[in-house]
């Protein structure tokens, strides 16, 4: 193994009680690769991402980040056991997630939202933390709002702050779960531009999105999920232009129709 994958998912299963949500996912993401995950509602896209950073405990298979198994270790007998919370946190320092609902902390100013994790998790001193936080805010075009509270910002601005907050932790991998789905249409572009810049800067990205045009432009690989399985994956050009499976064809057709009716409206 010359260079480990950034993310390596082997036969991943997730059950909620009796509900079998992920049914054996295999997916490799190389360092610097940009992978978009598409699929219908309830197909398991969010669950897949959330298993990677262990917001959900997966119930079968393995997730490795930079070659390191996430969440579970194996005993001498080969039985998996759950690792201590702190070990899990440490193994995930290279991964940060951006959520559909931004999830900023409303009682802190924008600058404190971005600086707090640096100070608390990395023990960076206040002045330096503020400096680094300010720099990341500038990078996403939000430097001028450092003193505002999240509630005073538009959705697009909040999402850019959330991205800056993640970036400040200097992850090598970022997970995006429908980062623009909660935004008014005219605010989608500003967030997608920031994500595109990250892609061009060589960061490893896994993006759950309904923005097919964007996925086609930035992705190295697109993964189509249906009912907890990877139905089809490949380069965006092939996947979008010559879909093989009936499910994907139908998914793309209905998506095109929705776009068409939007354009008409």
């Amino acid at each position: 193994m010359s260079q480990p994958y950034a993310i390596e998912i082997r036969n991943l299963h997730k059950h909620y009680g009796a509900h079998h949500v992920l049914k054996g996912i295999d997916l490799d993401i190389r360092p610097g690769e940009v992978v978009s995950i598409i699929g219908g509602s309830g197909s398991g896209k969010s669950t897949l991402l959330r298993c990677v950073n262990f917001l959900e405990e997966y119930t079968g298979g393995e997730v490795l980040v930079n070659g390191r198994m996430i969440g579970y270790g194996s005993s001498v007998t080969g039985e998996p056991y759950r690792l201590p919370e702190q070990t899990i946190r440490e193994s995930l320092t290279d991964v940060c997630m951006v959520f559909q609902q931004f999830n900023l902390w409303p009682h802190m100013r924008v600058l404190d939202n971005v600086a707090a994790p640096l100070r608390l998790v990395k023990g960076v001193r206040k002045a330096e933390a503020y400096e680094r936080a300010q720099a990341q805010l500038e990078r996403v075009g939000m430097g001028h709002k450092a003193a505002s509270y999240p509630g005073q910002l538009s959705g697009g601005q909040q999402q850019r702050v959330a991205i800056a907050r993640a970036l400040t932790m200097q992850p090598s991998i970022m997970l995006f779960d429908e980062p623009t789905s909660a935004l008014d249409p005219e605010l989608v572009g500003e967030v997608l531009n920031v994500i595109r810049d990250l892609a061009h800067a060589g960061m490893t990205l896994a993006i759950v999105t309904h923005e097919m045009g964007f996925a086609a432009r930035v992705s190295d690989k697109v993964v189509f999920l249906a009912e907890g399985r990877i139905e089809e994956q490949g380069a965006p050009r092939e996947l979008f232009n010559t879909p093989q499976s009936a499910r994907l064809q139908q998914f793309l057709t209905s998506w095109n129709e929705r776009q068409g009716s939007l354009a008409m409206a």
Partner: peptide, 30 residues
């Protein structure tokens, strides 16, 4: 408190105690 705020804290590496002190308690007190 929305669960997402706690998930963000955990994702960024805050310990449960740090999340309690810096994210939950200030908002709950208020």
């Amino acid at each position: 408190l929305p669960k997402g705020q706690l998930e963000a804290a955990r994702d960024l590496g805050l310990s449960p105690l740090q999340t309690l002190l810096h994210v939950q308690i200030p908002q709950v007190l208020r």
